[in-house]
Nucleic acid binder design. Structure first.
Lengths: 150, 150
DNA sequence: CCCAATTCTTTACACTGTCAAGAATTGGGA
DNA sequence: TCCCAATTCTTGACAGTGTAAAGAATTGGG
């Protein structure tokens, strides 16, 4: 890992945390680093990764960090059906493509331009703030495995 | 409840079950009826409702029924972030609108016509078969509660 | 450097859902 | 109608994900 890169990133996160009124802790920085290095990972994977980095961290601290940072938009939580919550450092407007077979998730830009799906046909009086879109399909790898089985 | 209506519906479900190669059981019919009468309910609610109807049913039978019927498109499962799976009898193409505060889910038609969101900008080699869209916001009831708190 | 507020650790627990084994039911065929 | 194999249901155990609560440790402003 390039030391300066990790540092500069850690600096940004520190700022973001402070801006959100959150304290800067080694646990939170490490959790953020883990999310950044393995986007779409689930909490358990992140816990493992952080333990490799810090030695020890409680499961609860990982959840607290993920929740706090999600709440303030420092990271983003996505929750595909049939999977535990996944986390990513990319917080701009984009959607996801999930494999029905292996569960892999990749980022995908919005289908029809900037944010068209935010305009629902009929809002039922709701105050809508987000359109979450998940495309479901089969990834190339799983396709080739299926073909091999034929 | 209008007896004939329930019967005719039960008949349809029986046909659908048989067409799917599934056996027709009192449990499955009751589970379907529960889903039909309370769309977007979670498994536990359905379990309660069916117990009110049949007297007893195991939790496992409810899950088996829901899974089997979902798999064959007799009902549809949706899984909003932060909630257990929800089930509905409406199986045509439509999306959902969920309240961030109370979790209520309502049906909503696709924003831009027939099924535009199915066309992802870049498919990453995936074989895409569905675009799942969930709009997130605050329902009218929760809006008024928030206003009352001010 | 100190202290209050926040965060982390530890432990317990709730909820959602699945697995496995044996009992009961369904439904096609004699 | 009865029988039997396949399917489904019941029961009990269990795994994974996430939260609650209480006390210890850390953070950061004064």
């Amino acid at each position: 890992m390039i030391e300066s890169e990790a540092n500069s990133n850690a600096l940004d996160v520190s700022k973001a945390l402070r801006a959100a009124g959150l304290q800067v802790t080694a646990q939170r920085l490490a959790v953020y680093e883990a999310v950044r290095s393995m986007p779409h990972a689930i909490a358990d994977d992140i816990c493992q990764a952080v333990r490799g980095e810090l030695g020890v961290i409680s499961r609860q601290a990982v959840y607290d960090s993920l929740n706090a940072m999600s709440e303030y938009g420092i990271i983003r939580r996505i929750q595909p059906a049939g999977s535990a919550a996944r986390y990513e450092d990319r917080v701009d407007n984009h959607h996801h493509l999930a494999c029905r077979q292996c569960g892999e998730v990749v980022d995908i830009n919005c289908a029809v331009g900037k944010a068209p799906c935010l305009v629902a046909e009929h809002d039922h009086g709701y105050d809508i703030d987000e359109a979450e879109v998940i495309y479901w399909g089969v990834c190339p790898t799983c396709q080739s495995i299926s073909n091999r089985d034929d």
